Computed example of a mutant assay.
Amino acid sequence: MTPARGRSFLGRGEIAELAEPVFGRGRRVAEAQRLRGGSKKGVYRVLFEDGSSAVLYVWSAEEDYWPATSGDSAASSGEGPFSHASGLRFFETSVACLERAGVRVPRLRFADGTRSRRPYDFAFAEDVRGGTLEERLTDDPLGARAVLARLGEALELMRRRTSPRIGKVADVLDGPETAEGGSRAGRPPRIRQAQAVVLDRALRHLDEAAARVGSIAEVREQCRAVLEELAEGIEPRTRHGLIHGELGPDHVLVDDRDEPVLIDIEGTMFFDVEWEHVFLRIRFGEHYEDLRVDGLDERRMELYRLAQHLSLVAGPLRLLDGDFPDRRFMEGLVAHHTGVTLELLRSR
């Protein structure tokens, strides 16, 4: 990927300097490839002369295309479930939490958040070379069903791990309330209902989208009323499951045993499982039937579906204000999710 507007990405020489203390001088870096698609961190495949490989993650301002204020108000800079989850702290905590739950993620080889060697956080992890589940579903949809079944089992393991609080695992597990509900230091838990957080966020996204997209502006008041009506009818909850948050088939790798491996995990959080299933339905399309589960709250699903489509209009618009390189892709997202939002409102 060519750096946009003067961004400086890592070259082979710098990556080799990072790798040498981790892998030893005997494993020389032959090639380093910056992988496409990331918007918050840099992802590099590091190929060694002995034929082995690793993945390097880099969290730096050069690699993060999101504006300083991400549009999620206080949640963008604090401990909210939709905070800007970019950094080694989020990554390491999510790796540990998912592994404890029995969910496969790339094995962490080394991590450095001291910034003593470089002015950024970085980590080396296992290079899972089986491609993405998205590719598998395209090339061999019948054969991919076994991987989908195992992904469903992983999601069930995550759903069983619960917390009375909502938020990123790095915030919940380091906060005043543990994932098992124990209070720390005698401080009262800070508990807010997930649907209230989603409603506030959706209303902000509605305002952002309406300011930029004429067709959204025309239905702004109707959309606001629908969001508020849906949220008002949702019953409170006291426990929330562990979810990935943005689990599309491109965020699932397949290893050499056909096991699903979750990536882009910094946003892993305790939240309503319905949020995960709405996103799964959006991204997996017809293949979602292999991941569907019983017992979900349909009213939550309805609210979260409208909220997510609004987010998928407002978020790409913010990236388009910057120098994100794949602008056509983002413009397509805005157009598609604007159309779905309008259709959802017409169908009511």
Rank of each mutant, 00 (worst) to 15 (best):
D121M: 01
F122E: 07
A123V: 03
A123N: 10
A123D: 03
F124T: 15
A125F: 00
D127E: 02
V128Q: 04
V128H: 05
V128N: 06
V128I: 13
R129N: 08
G130K: 03
G130D: 04
G131E: 03
L133R: 03
L133D: 02
E134R: 15
E134Q: 15
E135V: 05
E135N: 11
R136E: 12
R136G: 06
R136A: 13
L137G: 04
T138F: 04
D140C: 05
D140M: 06
L142T: 09
G143K: 08
G143P: 14
G143D: 09
G143N: 09
G143Y: 06
R145A: 06
A146T: 07
V147H: 08
V147E: 09
R150Q: 13
L151C: 09
G152E: 00
E153L: 10
E153P: 13
A154Q: 14
L155S: 02
E156G: 12
L157N: 06
L157A: 13
L157R: 15
R159E: 10
R159D: 10
R160G: 13
T162S: 10
T162M: 08
S163Q: 07
A170N: 01
A170S: 13
A170I: 00
D171M: 03
D171E: 13
V172Q: 09
L173Q: 11
D174P: 00
E177H: 09
E177A: 11
E177F: 04
E177M: 15
E180F: 05
G182W: 05
S183Y: 09
S183P: 15
R184T: 00
R184K: 12
R184G: 02
A185E: 11
A185L: 14
R187W: 07
P188I: 06
P189E: 05
P189D: 06
R190W: 02
R190M: 05
R190L: 11
R190C: 01
I191S: 07
I191R: 14
I191V: 12
I191C: 06
A194Q: 02
V197G: 07
V197C: 07
V197A: 12
V198K: 09
V198E: 13
L199V: 04
D200S: 15
A202Y: 02
A202N: 02
L203H: 12
R204N: 10
H205R: 05
L206P: 14
D207Y: 00
D207V: 01
E208W: 10
A210H: 08
V213M: 10
V213N: 13
V213G: 12
V213T: 13
S215W: 00
S215H: 10
S215M: 04
S215K: 14
I216Q: 01
I216Y: 01
I216N: 00
I216K: 08
A217E: 09
A217N: 04
V219C: 08
V219T: 06
